[in-house]
Computed example of a mutant assay.
Amino acid sequence: MNPCPQDEFRPQSAVVISTTVVVNIIWWMVMIAAIGVGLTNLGHCPLQPNIPIYLIVLGASSLLSLSLTYTRSIWQDGCISILSLTCTTLLHLFTLSWFIAGTTWVYPVYPPNYTPGVARYCQRTTYQFAFIVTTLVWVTLSLVFVCVFCFGLLTCCKTVTARRRLIPSRNSFYGAISEEPTAGDV
């Protein structure tokens, strides 16, 4: 028995598939780089020692949640599917919470001093990588929320406009205008 019959798949455009693949590959590379930068500079940011740890945990949790998201489609029914969905959801929530915590570590120390031995020292690559990744994620999240808000507003406006056309007025019968004379016509 085939667990994924062909008629259950929705056709998708090549642009959507290509964009999704490219964005996922870029995100995988960035998160692997985050783990690498965090590990190589673990003790090199005394100003905020949580920044390298933030990069390591963000990278690992993002890669794990992406992996679970990809493999979740394998298990479509049963207890394993529910367990996989639960783990994926909890991991996404943890990653979001960790990202917010990392934001509180990265932004308040801006700009650090990149000269070793100074009181406000943080290794340049570590801090700039954390700052750029955090900023890009915030910009992306903001754009997603703006697009969702605009889509919702557009949907509401179309619904209100369509409803106005669907509700019969006093002189119409479900959109047909009556030919009865009014008091002013006589």
Rank of each mutant, 00 (worst) to 15 (best):
residue 16 V to P: 01
residue 71 T to V: 14
residue 46 P to K: 11
residue 168 P to F: 07
residue 186 V to A: 07
residue 145 F to N: 13
residue 184 G to Y: 07
residue 61 S to A: 15
residue 122 C to N: 01
residue 127 Y to M: 04
residue 179 E to V: 14
residue 174 Y to V: 12
residue 72 R to P: 00
residue 48 Q to D: 00
residue 186 V to T: 10
residue 150 C to V: 12
residue 34 A to K: 07
residue 170 R to C: 03
residue 60 A to Q: 06
residue 160 V to I: 14
residue 121 Y to Q: 07
residue 163 R to I: 04
residue 57 V to G: 01
residue 87 C to F: 08
residue 2 N to L: 07
residue 18 S to M: 05
residue 34 A to C: 10
residue 138 W to A: 10
residue 102 G to W: 02
residue 160 V to D: 04
residue 32 I to T: 10
residue 49 P to S: 06
residue 73 S to R: 15
residue 38 G to E: 02
residue 112 P to D: 01
residue 35 I to A: 02
residue 153 L to F: 07
residue 174 Y to P: 00
residue 72 R to C: 00
residue 155 T to G: 12
residue 25 I to M: 07
residue 182 T to D: 03
residue 152 G to V: 03
residue 104 T to Y: 08
residue 85 L to K: 15
residue 60 A to S: 13
residue 124 R to W: 02
residue 43 G to A: 06
residue 173 F to S: 10
residue 98 W to K: 13
residue 37 V to E: 01
residue 55 L to I: 03
residue 42 L to H: 10
residue 30 V to A: 09
residue 3 P to E: 02
residue 3 P to H: 04
residue 47 L to F: 08
residue 136 L to Y: 04
residue 120 R to D: 01
residue 92 H to N: 12
residue 129 F to E: 01
residue 9 F to N: 08
residue 144 V to D: 04
residue 173 F to V: 12
residue 45 C to W: 02
residue 148 V to Y: 03
residue 24 N to Q: 09
residue 83 L to R: 13
residue 105 W to H: 12
residue 136 L to N: 12
residue 23 V to I: 11
residue 20 T to K: 12
residue 71 T to R: 15
residue 182 T to C: 11
residue 156 C to W: 03
residue 159 T to D: 07
residue 156 C to T: 11
residue 67 S to L: 14
residue 166 L to W: 06
residue 5 P to G: 05
residue 1 M to V: 09
residue 94 F to R: 14
residue 75 W to N: 03
residue 55 L to H: 01
residue 176 A to K: 15
residue 163 R to H: 08
residue 102 G to A: 07
residue 92 H to R: 14
residue 126 T to W: 00
residue 113 N to D: 10
residue 53 I to Q: 04
residue 133 V to K: 05
residue 127 Y to G: 01
residue 47 L to K: 15
residue 163 R to D: 00
residue 111 P to N: 09
residue 102 G to R: 08
residue 85 L to A: 12
residue 147 C to M: 11
residue 145 F to L: 12
residue 12 Q to G: 01
residue 96 L to P: 01
residue 20 T to P: 01
residue 110 Y to D: 04
residue 146 V to F: 10
residue 95 T to I: 03
residue 33 A to L: 12
residue 75 W to I: 00
residue 44 H to Q: 11
residue 107 Y to Q: 08
residue 4 C to W: 06
residue 89 T to L: 08
residue 23 V to N: 04
residue 57 V to S: 02
residue 88 T to P: 01
residue 53 I to P: 00
residue 69 T to D: 03
residue 116 P to N: 04
residue 101 A to Y: 11
residue 112 P to A: 04
residue 64 L to A: 14
residue 19 T to H: 07
residue 92 H to T: 07
residue 15 V to L: 09
residue 111 P to M: 10
residue 101 A to S: 08
residue 9 F to C: 09
residue 121 Y to R: 14
residue 64 L to S: 15
residue 21 V to A: 08
residue 21 V to G: 01
residue 177 I to N: 06
residue 48 Q to A: 06
residue 129 F to Q: 03
residue 71 T to K: 15
residue 154 L to H: 09
residue 64 L to F: 12
residue 153 L to S: 11
residue 143 L to W: 07
residue 176 A to P: 00
residue 28 W to A: 09
residue 11 P to R: 11
residue 91 L to V: 05
residue 82 I to L: 08
residue 58 L to P: 00
residue 97 S to H: 08
residue 180 E to G: 09
residue 143 L to Y: 06
residue 72 R to N: 05
residue 164 R to H: 03
residue 94 F to E: 02
residue 62 S to T: 13
residue 170 R to M: 05
residue 1 M to C: 06
residue 104 T to M: 12
residue 50 N to K: 15
residue 81 S to H: 15
residue 40 T to R: 13
